[in-house]
Design a protein around this nucleic acid. Structure first.
Length: 434
DNA sequence: TCTGGGGTCCTAGGACCC
DNA sequence: TCTGGGGTCCTAGGACCC
């Protein structure tokens, strides 16, 4: 048996831990740039506020219904997610971190124990230690555990834990679920399956496996086997290094100047380089993309990207930023209203067996180190290491390249962000004693 | 005026190799 | 009439996830 533990309305729950007045009230959390609704409390869901709705379209409805609106606070959510995982691991050490609010649990070392009971204890513990409510689904495969988790969440009588094992019950629940509820069935497949009269999850379960493979490739076949109780998706306990890393943001307001785009791109490139160093990888390519607002019918549209092959693989911020600039120069066109830009690094390999170039080119490094006090920066490695350490100790962006700019009027909108209670000294919660 | 930001996997087809 | 038999790598496009 394995389990899927999932934090309920995770972002809203994080906010509620530190602001009790949000309890029992409709609350929504917005995406970056205060763009769309990405999390809703149960009360907000009950009012029919749809997931993913653009904020400006539902703003007046939210105001009328007195819904609490929050900008997303990813420092807080990331830190709370780590606490949740740490607490779970005290009880179940073997797990896979599937997303910020979901973990698959490996119960193989708990044979003979009552897993439902154990899971209920686990939920209570997570709630007590972190303040985050969770639901746990138990089943033989990941796909069934996902379903069981839905049941645990949907029906209060299960008290947040549901074990789905009995074939008759599996069939019954599948017959009550639309096929699009299954993990791995998105809107495209749902529409295609509907044409073949496959409407419920049970219809897919009862379809011949070879037909499923023909229509939905090996991915669909795996899903089919998982529904029938044969595991095809293993638990990935070690997090694999990412194959691509992307940093991008929409601008708080549309931008037209090269200098604004260049600053933003340098900033995103710096973030990519830092993420590369965190996972101890180097990149072989850097891709820069820019785009205008595709929803805007009044301004002319433009989107473009350019991939720059790096002369040697690197995770040095200065190199990545330098080639980002080169790529941006190729795609920037004046007289457009830009809405977004981003940087993607790819061709990632581990930094400790980095492939050297035939002619290692240290021009940028030398140019830079000659203007900096010698003992600090004679190798790119040590300078980046120091920069990361300083930024870790004194806060993100304490040290950055000048090309990232200082004005940052391209920064995203974030009108309703709560304090970063757990990660910033000057934003700690305050307790008053009477 | 205002519409997010990350990721992964699979397949087919085209190019190449011996 | 008859035209080999293995492979790899890369990319674009399509699907999905949170």
């Amino acid at each position: 048996m394995l389990g899927l533990i999932d934090s309920n309305n995770f972002y809203v729950s994080c906010e509620r831990v530190f602001d009790p007045k949000l309890e029992k009230r409709p609350v929504v959390v917005l995406s970056n740039n205060d763009g769309c609704i990405v999390a809703r409390s149960e009360e907000a869901k009950a009012m029919g506020i749809p997931m993913g709705a653009p904020y400006f379209k539902v703003k007046s409805l939210l105001e009328r219904q007195q819904v609490e609106v929050l900008s997303s606070n990813y420092h807080l959510y990331g830190s709370m997610a780590r606490r949740v995982v740490d607490t779970i691991q005290e009880v179940v050490p073997e797990l896979e971190i599937y997303s910020v609010d979901e973990q698959f649990l490996d119960f193989s070392s708990f044979s003979g124990q009552d897993l439902s009971e154990l899971s209920r204890t686990l939920r209570t513990r997570v709630l007590r230690h972190t303040g985050i409510p969770t639901s746990i689904g138990l089943a033989k495969t990941k796909t069934l555990a996902k379903l069981a988790n839905r049941l645990a969440k949907k029906n209060r009588v299960h008290k947040g834990v549901y074990l789905l094992e009995d074939t008759r019950l599996i069939r019954k629940y599948l017959s009550l679920s639309p096929v699009s509820d299954l993990w791995g069935i998105g809107s495209r497949y749902a529409a295609r399956l509907a044409k073949h009269n496959i409407i419920t999850a049970l219809d897919l379960y009862d379809a011949p496996s070879m037909w499923v493979k023909k229509e939905m490739t090996i991915v669909g076949l795996r899903l089919w086997h998982e529904l029938h109780g044969t595991p095809c998706l293993s638990l990935e306990q070690v997090q694999k290094p990412k194959k691509n890393i992307c940093t991008s943001r929409s601008f708080g307001k549309l931008q037209t100047s090269y200098s604004a785009l260049s600053e933003a791109a340098a900033h995103h490139a710096s973030c990519c380089a830092q993420k590369l160093r965190e996972q101890r990888s180097v990149a072989a390519f850097v891709n820069v993309f820019v785009q205008t607002n595709r929803h805007n019918e009044h301004h002319p549209q433009y989107r473009n990207s350019f991939t720059y092959p790096l002369p040697e693989t690197t995770n040095d911020t200065r190199h990545i930023v330098h080639y980002t600039e080169q790529a941006l120069q190729r795609i920037f066109r004046p007289n457009f209203y830009y809405q977004k830009c981003g940087v993607i690094v790819s061709g990632l390999t581990p930094e400790d067996n980095r492939q050297l170039a035939l002619f290692e080119n240290d021009e940028i490094v030398q140019e830079f180190s000659s203007s900096v006090a010698k003992p600090m920066a004679n190798t790119p490695c040590s300078l980046m290491k120091i920069m990361d350490e300083v930024n870790y100790r004194f806060g993100h962006n304490t040290l950055k390249l000048a090309s990232c700019g200082t004005k940052a009027d391209w920064h995203m909108r974030q009108a309703h962000r709560s304090p970063r209670y757990t990660t910033h000294w000057d934003e700690l919660p305050v307790v008053y004693c009477h």
